[in-house]
Computed example of a mutant assay.
Amino acid sequence: MSSYRSPGVEAARRAVAAKLREVRLEAGLTGHELAVRCGWHKSKSSRIENARTPPSDTDIRKWCEACGAADQAADIVAASRTADSMYTEWRRLQRTGLRRLQESRMPLYERTKNFRGYASHVVPGLFQTPAYASALLSVIGRFHGTPDDTAEAVRARMSRARVLHEGEHRFALLVEESVLRYQIGDAATMAEQLGHLLSVMALPSVSLGVIPFGARERGMWTLETFNIFDEERVHVELLTAQVTVTAPGEIALYVKAFRELRKMALYGTAARALVTSAIAAVG
Rank of each mutant, 00 (worst) to 15 (best):
S3M: 08
S3C: 01
A15I: 02
A18D: 14
L20G: 09
E22M: 09
A27L: 10
G28S: 05
G28P: 09
G31K: 06
H32C: 01
L34S: 11
V36N: 03
W40I: 07
H41K: 14
K42R: 08
S43F: 00
S45C: 12
R47T: 07
E49A: 10
E49L: 02
R52K: 11
R52F: 00
T53G: 00
D57Y: 00
K62P: 02
E65F: 00
C67Q: 09
A69M: 01
A73T: 14
A74C: 02
T82F: 01
A83C: 08
M86V: 04
Y87E: 09
R91N: 10
Q94N: 08
R99V: 02
R99M: 08
R99N: 04
R100M: 03
S104W: 05
R105F: 05
M106L: 12
M106G: 06
L108H: 10
T112H: 03
N114A: 11
F115Q: 04
F115G: 09
Y118D: 05
V122S: 13
V123N: 08
L126C: 07
Q128L: 05
T129D: 03
P130F: 02
P130G: 06
A133N: 08
S138K: 11
I140L: 11
R142I: 00
D148Y: 12
T150A: 04
E152M: 11
R155M: 09
A156M: 04
R157T: 03
R157V: 02
R157D: 05
R160S: 11
A161Y: 02
A161F: 01
A161G: 14
A161H: 06
R162K: 15
E166L: 09
E166G: 04
G167Y: 05
H169N: 12
R181W: 05
A187Y: 01
A191G: 13
L197R: 12
S207P: 04
S207C: 12
L208C: 06
G209L: 06
V210R: 07
V210L: 06
P212E: 12
P212G: 09
A215I: 07
R216H: 14
R216E: 13
M220D: 03
E224N: 15
E232V: 13
R233M: 15
R233T: 15
L238H: 13
A247P: 06
I251T: 10
A252F: 00
K256H: 15
K256P: 01
A257G: 05
K263N: 07
T276E: 15
S277T: 14
I279G: 02
A280S: 08
